[in-house]
């Protein structure tokens, strides 16, 4: 019997991503989330019908990396912009991609009310506990005691409050279809996060409800940690404050 061996490509760049290189720092989970979202769009075959609403923050160029239509919203207003697009064109899949400074600080009102109205959008919330683009300032999600450029002695809950748990907050509302928190600190969690993003998109396509996928991410530059150490910090410390798993699944 001839021993014919052929090489099959088993992992390739998602078709719904452009060829442009990401502007993220080495080891940043934003790139991974972009890839996961691209894979999910590919899997559902919705590239031609997807609109990405980009935030202000490190992901401000998100529309450059997806071979989809895109809008770059004013700071924090991605959920409001996504609402408008979805109401005007309910046949489209509308995804807002936002960081914690964007979604959980300046955009808190838009975030909560879009969720409370049950707008049929998918919100990808990147929780890396810091303002990355502007130089590592404290975010609403910064951990107690965590150092940032605007709290160099560490976050003091007495004057700065405790980290805001967005997924839990949204999960108290009646309207959201799917609320989950995922992480990317190892291959297993990357696989789970991939399934969660796919599910959130699928729910929008099939059932027209609101989904929030909070993804606990790293910021090696802002945290001043090498990428692998940042992943270990997520596993050992961050996930204690931001527990992982589905909070709401009414799908």
């Amino acid at each position: 019997m001839p021993e014919t061996q052929t090489l099959t490509k088993v992992f390739a760049r998602p078709r719904s991503l452009t060829d442009k290189r990401f502007t993220y720092c080495p080891g940043c989970h934003h790139g991974l989330i972009t890839r996961i979202l691209g894979s999910a769009i590919d899997k559902l075959g919705i590239q031609e019908k997807t609109v990405i609403v980009a935030p202000v923050g490190c992901a401000v160029f998100a529309y450059e990396w997806f071979r989809c239509d895109g809008v770059q919203a004013a700071h924090g207003r991605a959920a409001a912009v996504a609402t408008g697009i979805k109401r005007a064109r309910p046949d489209l899949t509308v995804v807002s991609y936002q960081g914690d400074g964007d979604l959980a600080a300046i955009g808190t009102a838009e975030t909560i009310h879009a969720a409370n109205r049950g707008e049929a959008i998918t919100v990808i919330f990147v929780n890396n506990q810091i303002y990355g683009m502007t130089g590592g300032q404290m975010a609403p999600t910064t951990l107690d005691g965590q150092r940032a450029t605007s709290c160099p002695e560490g976050r003091d809950p007495a004057t700065m409050g405790h980290p805001l748990r967005v997924a839990e907050l949204i999960a108290t509302l009646a309207a959201p279809l799917y609320v989950t928190r995922q992480s990317l600190h190892d291959a297993k969690h990357i696989a789970q996060a991939t399934q969660a993003v796919e599910k959130a998109l699928r729910y929008q396509v099939e059932k027209r409800g609101y989904s929030l996928v909070e993804i606990v991410a790293n910021c090696p530059t802002g945290w001043k940690m090498p990428p692998q150490k940042a992943n270990e910090h997520i596993a050992g410390t961050v996930t204690k404050v931001f527990p992982l798993g589905d909070l709401v699944d009414r799908g």
Partner: peptide, 26 residues
């Protein structure tokens, strides 16, 4: 082994993975 864990972990989508497949039905 072509398991692709490297590619799934890469934040810059810089890795493509190939795996050998026996063409005949062994």
């Amino acid at each position: 082994t072509g398991c692709a864990l490297c590619a799934q972990t890469c934040p810059d989508v810089a890795i493509e993975v190939y795996r050998e497949k026996a063409a005949s039905g062994s």
